[in-house]
Write a protein that binds this DNA or RNA. Sequence first.
DNA 1: CCTTGACTTAAAGTTAGCTTTAAGTTTTAT
DNA 2: ATAAAACTTAAAGCTAACTTTAAGTCAAGG
Lengths: 131, 131
Amino acid sequence: MSGLSIGQLAAKAEINASTLRYYESVGLLPPPERKNGQRRYDEGLLDRINFIKVAQQTGFNIQEITILLEGFVPGDSLSDRWEQMARQKRSELEERKKQLNSMIQILDSGLSCKCLTWSECKEKIENEGSC
Amino acid sequence: MSGLSIGQLAAKAEINASTLRYYESVGLLPPPERKNGQRRYDEGLLDRINFIKVAQQTGFNIQEITILLEGFVPGDSLSDRWEQMARQKRSELEERKKQLNSMIQILDSGLSCKCLTWSECKEKIENEGSC
DNA sequence: CCTTGACTTAAAGTTAGCTTTAAGTTTTAT
DNA sequence: ATAAAACTTAAAGCTAACTTTAAGTCAAGG
């Protein structure tokens, strides 16, 4: 047997088979070969699927991920919309990273500082490194 | 006039007035005083609202934010569920931070490396610091 | 041969987190 | 005094990203 069935790929990727069909329908995944009408996948797709997961977790929506993935088409140079999206997204992600750091410190401190407000806590963290 | 109307607070917080009502309905915001049936808010609430925004951006859902906010009730010590949530969330946020860093590097590199897969790119970044 | 389980499509249903609508009351500005 | 703007509630509507359902086809084991 050459290639994985949709169920087998889904199991390996730890997602629902119907999610795979959905991704195909919205263009996130290329239409695979068929054998007797049934989809056959190459195991290499796991990599793409995992990338999709990370992209989602870092704040890309499905439309943005389809653009992002254009960057992995061998031989193609990056499209204008790829570069534009990348520039915009980069600053969003930097902002999110800052927020993440503040939030981690707040969780770490267990609010031992007894600050009454978020801004008080945040400022202390920024000036004194912890709270 | 003492206190802000819902519209005024909404404007300052740059969110929809109906979002404020919604937050109240799900317990994210305390029921404010009323004047002739209309809500009157203290400007200090802005701080809480901004914290809610950051919490959302860093991956807390509304239920989790309500727990998180228990930490800002003056006089109360942290509840068990606060500490449990904090522990669990902390590791989630650390993971997200790593993903964020990889993703930022990928955007930065503009895929100049011409990696064909996400894992190839990620590995290169981890070993060589860039791609 | 027949049953069982995995596959197929198209369409409807689900959840979170709002947002809009409808129908009515209050406040504010002229 | 009155018209427009802002408020009230309850309920319906919206969007993204799936997930489930219905009705049917295909393939492997006993």
